[in-house]
């Protein structure tokens, strides 16, 4: 029957992962935590390595930070308000910002903790929620169809964590071109249409 085995559809997989969050919140279930680790740790490491290629210890540290927050914040996570994949992304982003701030050559007096708390207590209304599944799918499809130069810019900004200025220097493009490519990409993905 091996030919019949199908890869789980992304939505089934997501539902299983969300159930793990409930098990952690209600029962402090470590096997649920291990399941989340198996799925997300390789993604989080890849995200870290995209910015710092070869820095395996930094990547492991980021996994540790993010997964620790997953364990501590599981009871606050509400799958009706936020998609788990997106929630994990925002945790990874926030942990990376913290890490960079602590390890930067340049001192900043600004504590990011209260700046990036967007996913933790607000979510879309029921109407947006109904559209969320569709939005996931359309963003995924849209990313595949983006012109290479637009996808490249999104990768620089989102995964490598480059500012527009750094992106412009690295790709030897005028700053205005970087900004307009971001804008064009977002337009193609239709993420900014407020319905």
């Amino acid at each position: 029957m091996q030919a019949m085995t199908k890869r789980k559809a992304p939505s089934d997989k997501l539902a299983a992962l969300s159930a793990c969050m409930t098990r952690i919140a209600n029962d402090r279930d470590k096997s649920a935590f291990a399941e989340l680790f198996d799925h997300y740790a390789p993604q989080i490491r890849a995200y870290s390595l995209a910015r710092d290629p070869g820095a395996d210890l930094v990547a492991d540290d980021l996994v540790q930070e993010v997964m620790t927050r997953v364990w501590l914040k599981a009871s606050k996570y509400n799958s009706n308000l936020a998609n788990l994949n997106t929630w994990i992304f925002t945790l990874a982003r926030n942990c990376r910002i913290d890490y960079l701030r602590r390890n930067s050559r340049y001192v900043t007096e600004i504590d990011p903790t209260d700046i990036f708390n967007d996913m933790e207590d607000e979510g879309p209304g029921p109407f947006q929620m109904a559209q969320q599944g569709r939005a996931e799918e359309s963003i995924r499809a849209g990313l595949e169809e983006l012109p290479r130069e637009q996808a490249e810019i999104l990768t620089k900004v989102y995964l490598e964590g480059k500012s527009h200025q750094q992106t412009s220097e690295e790709l030897k493009l005028p700053l205005g071109t970087v900004k307009s490519r971001v804008r064009l990409a977002l337009k193609k993905l239709e993420v900014l249409v407020v319905r």
């Binding site: 390789p42 890849a46 995209a50 994949n85 925002t90 990874a92 607000e122 963003i139 900014l192």
Partner: peptide
């Protein structure tokens, strides 16, 4: 309205992260 835009933008980040080649832990 910017809050709603931000949620969609976070989803873009999430999708980009998922498209990376997983790095074994």
């Amino acid at each position: 309205s910017c809050g709603q835009k931000l949620q969609r933008l976070n989803r873009v980040g999430s999708q980009l992260m998922q498209q990376l080649k997983p790095a074994r832990a």
